[in-house]
Amino acid sequence: MSEAFIELRGVRKAYNEGLPNQFWAVDGVDLTLERGRVTLLTGPSGSGKTTLLTLLGCLARPTEGRVRVAGQDVSSLPERFLTEQRRHNFGFVFQQFNLIRGLSVLDNVMLPAFPLAPPHGELRSRALQLLGELGLEHRSDARVEWLSGGEAQRAAIARALINDPPVVIADEPTANLDTHLSKAFLAIVERLKDEGRTVILSSHDALVAEATIVDRIVSLRDGKVVG
């Protein structure tokens, strides 16, 4: 049985704290995610899916509650250390891909590793290898503005993997893709799972919900888990 990799206990996150329009995006969530599984977060917009993703992935700190990653409490870690955790454990694929325009695909993929300052040659070859695995090696010098939707997503995935993280988080991955590309994406997820990585997805898409690779579905409503 896979052990718990990410644990949330009584986690709440507020926005606009102290202001009259304060609201709790995540309002009391207890969740345990296991290593090596593919988990899907669903729920209507405003249910707190995105916020929950940021909390799971060490992108934000909870206002209340405890978050543990690989047994270590990260809830009160200062930013420097939280970022270190994030760099080592998590890779993100954003809904908008968020590749930096004006830079080549290769540069974009190498970007997350810059602060770690590995030897340049090593980093470059690792990036090229990832692009190769995703079928993008021939586009490595192209500017990201010239990529098609599917190519851009694969570039984003390569970037998420550059630091070899055990967890990959994807926010609404199929929202900008047609059926064919969505299926291609799910095939990549399967490959990631085979590599032993943990995958967390958030999606409205029925295609994703019905995919066989999804091990668990977590439904959210009004900041709480309902299923």
């Binding site: 420097r80 760099r87 970007l111 997350p112």
Partner: peptide, 16 residues
């Protein structure tokens, strides 16, 4: 601003 947001999201910390 978006660019900096992306940098922060992919693992650059404030100091970087």
């Amino acid at each position: 601003q978006r660019e900096i947001g992306v940098l922060k999201a992919v693992g650059w910390e404030t100091g970087d």
